[in-house]
Amino acid sequence: MKNIGTIAAAVFLGLVLLLYMCTFQVRFTEVAIVKTFGKPASEAIAEPGLRFKWPPPIQTVTTYDKRIRILEDRTEETRTVDHKNLVVTTFTLWRIGDKPGDAVNFLTNFPSGEEDGEKQLRTTVVTQKHAIIGKHAFPEFVSLDPMKRKLRSIEDEIGGAVATEVRERYGIEILGFGIKKLGLPQSVTTDIFAKMKTKEEGAAAGYAAEGEAQAQDILAEAKATEARIMAAARDKVAKIENEAEKVVSSMYKEFDEHPELRIFLDKLRALEVALSNRATLILDSNAAPWDIVTPEGRSAVRPDAAVE
Protein backbone atom coordinates (compact mmCIF):
# COMPACT_ATOMS: atom_id res chain seq x y z
CA MET A 1 0.00 0.00 0.00
CA LYS A 2 2.86 2.29 0.91
CA ASN A 3 4.41 1.72 -2.54
CA ILE A 4 1.20 2.77 -4.32
CA GLY A 5 1.39 6.24 -2.74
CA THR A 6 5.01 6.62 -3.69
CA ILE A 7 4.31 5.49 -7.23
CA ALA A 8 1.34 7.91 -7.53
CA ALA A 9 3.51 10.79 -6.32
CA ALA A 10 6.25 9.85 -8.79
CA VAL A 11 3.72 9.61 -11.64
CA PHE A 12 2.28 12.99 -10.67
CA LEU A 13 5.70 14.63 -10.60
CA GLY A 14 6.56 12.96 -13.93
CA LEU A 15 3.36 14.34 -15.47
CA VAL A 16 4.06 17.82 -14.13
CA LEU A 17 7.58 17.67 -15.59
CA LEU A 18 6.26 16.43 -18.92
CA LEU A 19 3.60 19.14 -18.95
CA TYR A 20 6.25 21.72 -18.17
CA MET A 21 8.46 20.50 -21.01
CA CYS A 22 5.71 20.05 -23.58
CA THR A 23 3.53 23.11 -23.00
CA PHE A 24 3.99 26.86 -22.94
CA GLN A 25 1.79 29.81 -22.20
CA VAL A 26 1.31 32.75 -24.50
CA ARG A 27 0.29 35.75 -22.42
CA PHE A 28 -2.12 38.28 -23.89
CA THR A 29 0.75 40.75 -23.88
CA GLU A 30 3.11 38.50 -25.81
CA VAL A 31 3.81 36.97 -29.13
CA ALA A 32 5.56 33.57 -29.23
CA ILE A 33 7.70 31.88 -31.87
CA VAL A 34 8.27 28.12 -31.80
CA LYS A 35 11.71 27.03 -33.02
CA THR A 36 12.22 23.47 -34.20
CA PHE A 37 15.88 22.48 -33.87
CA GLY A 38 16.63 26.22 -33.76
CA LYS A 39 14.68 27.07 -36.94
CA PRO A 40 11.82 29.49 -36.26
CA ALA A 41 8.32 28.77 -37.52
CA SER A 42 7.15 30.93 -40.38
CA GLU A 43 4.51 32.66 -38.25
CA ALA A 44 4.37 33.68 -34.61
CA ILE A 45 1.57 32.82 -32.21
CA ALA A 46 -0.23 35.94 -31.07
CA GLU A 47 -3.36 34.34 -29.57
CA PRO A 48 -3.05 33.95 -25.79
CA GLY A 49 -3.52 30.57 -24.09
CA LEU A 50 -1.85 27.23 -23.39
CA ARG A 51 0.08 25.65 -26.30
CA PHE A 52 1.80 22.34 -26.83
CA LYS A 53 5.25 21.71 -28.23
CA TRP A 54 7.84 18.98 -28.36
CA PRO A 55 10.20 19.03 -25.42
CA PRO A 56 13.65 20.62 -25.78
CA PRO A 57 15.92 20.26 -27.60
CA ILE A 58 13.38 19.42 -30.35
CA GLN A 59 11.35 22.59 -29.93
CA THR A 60 12.04 25.77 -27.96
CA VAL A 61 9.99 28.95 -27.63
CA THR A 62 10.95 32.65 -27.80
CA THR A 63 8.44 35.20 -26.58
CA TYR A 64 8.35 38.97 -27.08
CA ASP A 65 6.28 41.64 -25.39
CA LYS A 66 4.03 42.98 -28.12
CA ARG A 67 3.03 46.15 -26.25
CA ILE A 68 4.29 49.70 -26.70
CA ARG A 69 7.81 50.34 -25.46
CA ILE A 70 9.78 53.54 -25.07
CA LEU A 71 13.32 53.88 -26.29
CA GLU A 72 15.41 56.96 -25.65
CA ASP A 73 18.49 57.94 -27.60
CA ARG A 74 21.58 59.69 -26.33
CA THR A 75 21.82 63.44 -25.73
CA GLU A 76 24.12 64.96 -28.29
CA GLU A 77 24.75 68.07 -30.29
CA THR A 78 23.50 68.22 -33.83
CA ARG A 79 23.84 70.97 -36.40
CA THR A 80 21.06 72.70 -38.31
CA VAL A 81 21.37 73.74 -41.93
CA ASP A 82 22.10 77.34 -40.85
CA HIS A 83 25.04 76.09 -38.73
CA LYS A 84 23.41 76.41 -35.33
CA ASN A 85 24.12 73.70 -32.79
CA LEU A 86 21.24 72.11 -30.94
CA VAL A 87 21.35 69.61 -28.10
CA VAL A 88 18.69 67.03 -28.87
CA THR A 89 17.43 63.88 -27.17
CA THR A 90 14.56 61.90 -28.63
CA PHE A 91 12.26 59.08 -27.67
CA THR A 92 10.59 56.49 -29.82
CA LEU A 93 7.41 54.57 -29.06
CA TRP A 94 7.74 51.19 -30.75
CA ARG A 95 6.60 47.60 -30.62
CA ILE A 96 7.05 44.31 -32.43
CA GLY A 97 4.83 44.60 -35.50
CA ASP A 98 1.48 42.81 -35.52
CA LYS A 99 1.75 41.43 -39.05
CA PRO A 100 2.12 37.60 -39.17
CA GLY A 101 5.81 37.64 -40.10
CA ASP A 102 6.97 40.62 -38.01
CA ALA A 103 7.96 38.77 -34.84
CA VAL A 104 9.78 36.09 -36.85
CA ASN A 105 11.54 38.82 -38.82
CA PHE A 106 12.63 40.47 -35.55
CA LEU A 107 13.87 37.15 -34.16
CA THR A 108 15.76 36.32 -37.37
CA ASN A 109 17.51 39.69 -37.30
CA PHE A 110 18.22 39.71 -33.59
CA PRO A 111 18.60 36.12 -32.48
CA SER A 112 20.76 37.09 -29.50
CA GLY A 113 17.98 39.03 -27.83
CA GLU A 114 15.76 42.09 -27.84
CA GLU A 115 18.64 44.30 -26.70
CA ASP A 116 20.22 43.96 -30.14
CA GLY A 117 16.98 45.07 -31.72
CA GLU A 118 16.85 48.10 -29.39
CA LYS A 119 20.46 48.97 -30.28
CA GLN A 120 19.67 48.78 -33.99
CA LEU A 121 16.60 50.94 -33.55
CA ARG A 122 18.61 53.49 -31.57
CA THR A 123 21.27 53.59 -34.27
CA THR A 124 18.63 54.20 -36.92
CA VAL A 125 17.03 56.95 -34.82
CA VAL A 126 20.35 58.71 -34.24
CA THR A 127 21.26 58.53 -37.94
CA GLN A 128 17.90 59.91 -39.06
CA LYS A 129 17.91 62.54 -36.33
CA HIS A 130 21.21 64.02 -37.52
CA ALA A 131 20.29 63.70 -41.17
CA ILE A 132 16.88 65.36 -40.90
CA ILE A 133 17.76 68.07 -38.37
CA GLY A 134 20.66 68.95 -40.66
CA LYS A 135 18.17 69.80 -43.39
CA HIS A 136 16.26 72.32 -41.29
CA ALA A 137 17.10 75.82 -40.08
CA PHE A 138 17.05 76.93 -36.44
CA PRO A 139 13.89 79.09 -36.78
CA GLU A 140 12.00 75.98 -37.84
CA PHE A 141 12.44 74.71 -34.28
CA VAL A 142 11.66 77.89 -32.35
CA SER A 143 10.34 81.09 -33.84
CA LEU A 144 7.90 83.87 -33.12
CA ASP A 145 6.61 83.48 -36.67
CA PRO A 146 4.09 80.63 -36.74
CA MET A 147 4.66 80.21 -40.47
CA LYS A 148 8.30 79.34 -39.86
CA ARG A 149 7.77 76.89 -36.98
CA LYS A 150 7.91 73.26 -38.07
CA LEU A 151 8.88 71.37 -34.91
CA ARG A 152 6.04 68.87 -35.14
CA SER A 153 6.58 68.19 -38.80
CA ILE A 154 10.32 67.71 -38.17
CA GLU A 155 9.47 65.14 -35.50
CA ASP A 156 7.05 63.43 -37.87
CA GLU A 157 9.71 63.46 -40.57
CA ILE A 158 12.29 61.73 -38.36
CA GLY A 159 9.70 59.29 -37.00
CA GLY A 160 8.50 58.52 -40.52
CA ALA A 161 12.03 57.91 -41.82
CA VAL A 162 12.82 55.59 -38.91
CA ALA A 163 9.51 53.75 -39.39
CA THR A 164 10.18 53.19 -43.09
CA GLU A 165 13.61 51.80 -42.39
CA VAL A 166 12.74 49.40 -39.57
CA ARG A 167 9.25 48.19 -40.48
CA GLU A 168 10.00 45.82 -43.33
CA ARG A 169 13.59 45.11 -42.44
CA TYR A 170 13.21 44.28 -38.76
CA GLY A 171 9.48 43.89 -38.14
CA ILE A 172 9.47 46.91 -35.80
CA GLU A 173 6.44 49.20 -35.80
CA ILE A 174 6.91 52.86 -34.82
CA LEU A 175 3.92 54.34 -33.00
CA GLY A 176 5.32 57.68 -32.01
CA PHE A 177 8.41 59.80 -32.05
CA GLY A 178 9.28 62.98 -30.23
CA ILE A 179 11.99 65.30 -29.03
CA LYS A 180 12.26 65.09 -25.25
CA LYS A 181 15.11 67.54 -24.88
CA LEU A 182 15.84 70.54 -27.07
CA GLY A 183 18.64 72.68 -25.74
CA LEU A 184 21.62 74.74 -26.68
CA PRO A 185 25.34 74.26 -26.05
CA GLN A 186 26.57 75.79 -22.79
CA SER A 187 28.50 78.59 -24.51
CA VAL A 188 25.40 79.65 -26.46
CA THR A 189 23.23 79.83 -23.35
CA THR A 190 25.59 82.49 -21.92
CA ASP A 191 24.93 84.69 -24.98
CA ILE A 192 21.22 84.08 -24.63
CA PHE A 193 21.32 85.18 -21.00
CA ALA A 194 22.95 88.47 -22.01
CA LYS A 195 20.22 89.02 -24.59
CA MET A 196 17.47 88.14 -22.13
CA LYS A 197 18.94 90.56 -19.59
CA THR A 198 18.95 93.45 -22.07
CA LYS A 199 15.42 92.62 -23.09
CA GLU A 200 14.14 92.54 -19.51
CA GLU A 201 15.78 95.85 -18.68
CA GLY A 202 14.12 97.41 -21.73
CA ALA A 203 10.82 95.87 -20.72
CA ALA A 204 11.08 97.33 -17.20
CA ALA A 205 11.52 100.84 -18.60
CA GLY A 206 8.66 100.27 -21.01
CA TYR A 207 6.29 99.13 -18.26
CA ALA A 208 6.81 102.32 -16.24
CA ALA A 209 5.97 104.54 -19.23
CA GLU A 210 3.07 102.36 -20.32
CA GLY A 211 1.57 102.38 -16.84
CA GLU A 212 1.66 106.17 -16.68
CA ALA A 213 0.19 106.58 -20.16
CA GLN A 214 -2.55 104.01 -19.68
CA ALA A 215 -3.56 105.48 -16.31
CA GLN A 216 -3.79 108.94 -17.88
CA ASP A 217 -5.84 107.57 -20.75
CA ILE A 218 -8.24 105.90 -18.34
CA LEU A 219 -8.67 109.09 -16.31
CA ALA A 220 -9.09 111.24 -19.40
CA GLU A 221 -11.70 108.87 -20.72
CA ALA A 222 -13.44 108.91 -17.31
CA LYS A 223 -13.52 112.72 -17.27
CA ALA A 224 -14.84 112.84 -20.82
CA THR A 225 -17.51 110.27 -19.99
CA GLU A 226 -18.42 112.21 -16.86
CA ALA A 227 -18.79 115.37 -18.99
CA ARG A 228 -21.02 113.51 -21.44
CA ILE A 229 -23.15 112.17 -18.59
CA MET A 230 -23.54 115.61 -17.02
CA ALA A 231 -24.34 117.18 -20.38
CA ALA A 232 -27.02 114.55 -20.96
CA ALA A 233 -28.34 115.19 -17.44
CA ARG A 234 -28.45 118.96 -18.07
CA ASP A 235 -30.35 118.35 -21.29
CA LYS A 236 -32.79 116.23 -19.37
CA VAL A 237 -33.18 118.93 -16.71
CA ALA A 238 -33.83 121.56 -19.39
CA LYS A 239 -36.42 119.29 -20.94
CA ILE A 240 -38.19 118.77 -17.61
CA GLU A 241 -38.19 122.50 -16.85
CA ASN A 242 -39.41 123.38 -20.33
CA GLU A 243 -42.24 120.93 -19.93
CA ALA A 244 -43.20 122.58 -16.62
CA GLU A 245 -42.97 126.06 -18.19
CA LYS A 246 -45.24 124.94 -20.99
CA VAL A 247 -47.81 123.69 -18.51
CA VAL A 248 -47.59 126.90 -16.45
CA SER A 249 -47.82 129.10 -19.56
CA SER A 250 -50.92 127.29 -20.68
CA MET A 251 -52.55 128.29 -17.36
CA TYR A 252 -51.91 132.04 -17.69
CA LYS A 253 -54.98 132.52 -19.87
CA GLU A 254 -57.08 131.68 -16.80
CA PHE A 255 -56.22 135.16 -15.46
CA ASP A 256 -57.10 137.05 -18.64
CA GLU A 257 -60.34 138.44 -17.22
CA HIS A 258 -58.85 140.19 -14.18
CA PRO A 259 -55.06 139.98 -14.20
CA GLU A 260 -54.87 142.73 -11.51
CA LEU A 261 -56.53 140.35 -9.03
CA ARG A 262 -53.87 137.72 -9.63
CA ILE A 263 -51.14 140.35 -9.30
CA PHE A 264 -52.66 141.57 -6.03
CA LEU A 265 -52.77 138.02 -4.66
CA ASP A 266 -49.15 137.48 -5.64
CA LYS A 267 -48.14 140.68 -3.86
CA LEU A 268 -49.95 139.62 -0.72
CA ARG A 269 -48.12 136.33 -0.75
CA ALA A 270 -44.77 138.00 -1.39
CA LEU A 271 -45.33 140.40 1.45
CA GLU A 272 -46.28 137.64 3.83
CA VAL A 273 -43.26 135.57 2.87
CA ALA A 274 -40.94 138.56 3.24
CA LEU A 275 -42.24 139.34 6.71
CA SER A 276 -42.51 135.82 7.98
CA ASN A 277 -39.21 135.64 9.85
CA ARG A 278 -37.18 138.12 11.92
CA ALA A 279 -38.36 141.31 10.34
CA THR A 280 -38.87 144.82 11.63
CA LEU A 281 -41.88 146.63 10.38
CA ILE A 282 -41.95 150.43 10.88
CA LEU A 283 -45.39 151.75 10.52
CA ASP A 284 -46.35 155.32 9.92
CA SER A 285 -48.90 156.84 12.29
CA ASN A 286 -51.05 157.74 9.26
CA ALA A 287 -51.34 154.14 8.22
CA ALA A 288 -54.11 151.95 9.56
CA PRO A 289 -54.51 150.72 12.16
CA TRP A 290 -52.10 153.20 13.81
CA ASP A 291 -54.18 156.09 12.53
CA ILE A 292 -56.63 155.54 15.38
CA VAL A 293 -53.86 156.00 17.97
CA THR A 294 -54.17 159.81 17.64
CA PRO A 295 -57.33 161.81 18.45
CA GLU A 296 -57.35 163.05 14.84
CA GLY A 297 -57.40 159.53 13.60
CA ARG A 298 -60.18 158.53 15.89
CA SER A 299 -62.19 161.69 15.00
CA ALA A 300 -62.16 160.59 11.40
CA VAL A 301 -64.29 157.64 12.34
CA ARG A 302 -67.83 159.00 12.10
CA PRO A 303 -70.93 157.88 10.28
CA ASP A 304 -70.66 160.39 7.42
CA ALA A 305 -66.97 159.71 6.70
CA ALA A 306 -66.26 157.95 3.45
CA VAL A 307 -64.44 154.72 3.48
CA GLU A 308 -61.09 155.07 1.78
Partner: peptide
Protein backbone atom coordinates in the same frame (compact mmCIF):
# COMPACT_ATOMS: atom_id res chain seq x y z
CA UNK B 1 18.96 86.50 -15.46
CA UNK B 2 16.50 86.30 -12.62
CA UNK B 3 17.46 89.65 -11.10
CA UNK B 4 16.74 91.53 -14.33
CA UNK B 5 13.56 89.56 -14.74
CA UNK B 6 12.42 90.38 -11.21
CA UNK B 7 13.00 94.07 -11.88
CA UNK B 8 10.88 93.83 -15.00
CA UNK B 9 8.26 91.98 -12.99
CA UNK B 10 8.23 94.70 -10.34
CA UNK B 11 7.91 97.34 -13.05
CA UNK B 12 5.00 95.47 -14.53
CA UNK B 13 3.38 95.11 -11.13
CA UNK B 14 3.77 98.86 -10.63
CA UNK B 15 2.22 99.42 -14.05
CA UNK B 16 -0.72 97.16 -13.20
CA UNK B 17 -1.13 98.94 -9.86
CA UNK B 18 -1.21 102.30 -11.59
CA UNK B 19 -3.80 101.06 -14.05
CA UNK B 20 -5.88 99.53 -11.26
CA UNK B 21 -5.78 102.80 -9.33
CA UNK B 22 -6.80 104.73 -12.44
CA UNK B 23 -9.66 102.31 -12.99
CA UNK B 24 -10.77 102.71 -9.38
CA UNK B 25 -10.61 106.46 -9.83
CA UNK B 26 -12.62 106.15 -13.04
Amino acid sequence: VREAFDRAQQAENAKQKKIREAEQQR
